[in-house]
Design a binder for these strands. Structure first.
Lengths: 351, 351
DNA sequence: CTGAAAGCGCTTACAG
DNA sequence: CTGAAAGCGCTTACAG
């Protein structure tokens, strides 16, 4: 079907082009017999073009299979329908759900999301942000409230809409949506106390990097303190939080702290691993050891015993972040610059 | 610190600009006292610029905090350092690992990846691809070998590097990397037969959409046939594959097919859910029912009994896809246009 | 090794 | 409601 040797169609102007092939707005304009700007308007703001021209232009667009060049548009208008989402990890289900929530909202509104992964490395975050800002994004979503001075300076200079998400607090740049990890830790302390446990410990993995886990520990420990209970132990691992590590952690705890009655694991991956290990080694949960986690992964409801955990509203947080960003992009006034999405403690059989 | 009211610095030209603010290549050129094109070369191909100028330019770049406008560059050069990765789902760990593998390789080579999610919808895939091609990508990675005629026509017209991944076969467009899902199904059939099972069934969820699961079923069933064994049952569910659904599936099977000895679940999520349900309801695995899955999720090694499954090399597949794409982008000859990454059956305690 | 000119394919800002 | 001109910030293609 490719018999046409004249790539520009009939009567092309004598202008010598550097690259041919692609159909441009000029081709559409010629075909529809209007000015290029009219095509642009028909596509971007159809209401401003008469129905007659709109029909002719739409026909030309589909006949030619015209796909607008995003770069040309973004260059001319100085913004791009793109929103970077920068997170510290892509192997963690939590960030993936937040991303999914944000992406769904953004896509519906016609924005592309650019995924950035910092691997919990502040200097990578800065380099990444620099590259991403080169795309003239319409806005930026970034995980966390702790960033390098360089990153913050870059974002301030850039001066566009920005949401910092995951933990609730005062935004460094523009807007914030998240939950209080200290409050979550405190809530779990209250829960364990209310169930009668007194010898209580904490297990975390890489909590120097994952400072939100450290915040949960801080709230947990402080709340125990206030009840006159001293945190029995804190076990730290320098490895990613996995189900396998949770199992190792339980073995170590049972060995080192035979007196312990309950353990708050920094997240569900670890806690689920601990329960699965308990099954294998005959440790009774919660009789020998109560186990609690954080995140509210669905899997926790399918193991035996079912996991007591704190559900973080991940999808909703992602959606909220995107919605706040879109509101600001559209110039709507955003009532709150900081939004606490809260959490929910689900007490089940493992405590 | 923002005391400077003259955004263009000293002695700016009288040209009236539409938008100010951003530092451009012109600012850098002025500062370093060279032509803009020299700045461009110093940044993109440093070897072609003398060491002296390079130093001056680098200094100017960092003093001004210059971030190149990607859109201008992409428009001028007609390609963009961007690679869309289009997958049918973002809630499936499998695709996320493939993405992670590809993204790591692409990022190292200086390419941004644009994530596209089709939700197993062919027409969404086509719309998505159209938008994505508007970014003049350097290449495209897309899951699967089945696409709409429109999508294929678009990709052929576009004529850039493209890898179709996940299942092994003849590429529609350019290159392919994946594994044979029929062979995987056949391998599992052989395994179950070799363990002495004869009353064997299959469970799948949405296998009309997830046609790779249907391919595994086909290979499984055919291989049983060849051994003179008829597939005992096939249970289909019209819901996403989750651990919860796997539990429901096991209950249904035990009820409807009390004679069954072994079940091949379409993926590990379902199989793991079945094992966890078996624990709860006292069904002995594998004595009452042998259970096998597909994917090789890590979790399968931590449940009791450990899951027999087929490991798909997801990270490696993603990496390979990106490497093949980069080779083609760089104009290297790609020796094989189709790459079988294989799979590995891991026989454990659940069969 | 360095540069002046032209062009990439759109949209903004002005007119009518 | 429609359009001619200028411009976005880069790189290509050609010179020297």
């Amino acid at each position: 079907m490719e018999e046409d040797n004249n790539p520009r169609g009939a009567g092309g102007s004598p202008t010598r082009r550097r690259r041919s092939g692609r159909i441009t707005i000029t081709d559409v304009a010629e075909r529809a017999n209007v000015a290029r700007i009219t095509v642009s308007r028909a596509l971007n703001d159809p209401g401003t073009v008469s129905a007659d021209l709109r029909k002719r232009i739409d026909a030309a667009v589909s006949e030619l299979g015209y796909v607008p060049n995003r770069h040309a548009g973004s260059l001319a208008s100085a913004v791009s329908p793109v929103v970077p989402i920068v997170v510290p990890s892509l192997s963690n289900a939590v960030f993936l759900e937040v991303i999914r929530g944000a992406q769904t909202v953004l896509e519906t509104a016609g924005y592309e999301s650019l995924l950035g992964n910092t691997d919990y490395d502040v200097s990578r975050e800065q380099r990444l942000m620099q590259t991403l800002l080169g795309w003239s994004p319409a806005g930026v979503i970034i995980a966390g409230l702790r960033h390098s001075e360089g990153t913050l300076a870059m974002l301030r200079r850039w001066n566009g809409p920005c949401v910092e998400m995951m933990e609730f607090g005062t935004p460094n740049i523009d807007m914030n949506v998240g939950l209080s990890h200290e409050a979550a830790g405190a809530a779990m302390a209250q829960h364990l106390i209310s169930r009668g446990y007194r010898r209580i410990g904490f297990v975390g993995a890489r909590i120097d990097w994952d400072y939100r886990a450290a915040q949960r520990l801080a709230g947990f420990s402080q709340s125990l303190d206030q009840a006159g209970i001293e945190l029995d132990f804190v076990e730290r691992f320098d490895a990613p939080s996995t189900v396998g590590l949770g199992g190792r952690a339980l073995r170590r705890i049972v060995e080192r702290y035979p007196q312990a009655e309950a353990t708050f694991f920094a997240n569900d991956d670890l806690a689920i691993g601990a329960i699965l290990e308990a099954q294998r080694s005959g440790i009774r949960v919660p009789d020998d050891m109560a186990i609690a986690g954080f995140n509210g992964l669905n899997l926790g409801n399918h193991i035996t015993p079912r996991l007591t955990t704190i559900v973080s509203p991940r999808l909703r947080m992602g959606r909220r972040a995107a919605e706040m960003l879109l509101a600001r992009i559209r110039g709507e006034s955003v009532p709150q610059c900081s939004k606490d999405v809260g959490f929910r403690l689900v007490a089940q059989d493992s405590t």
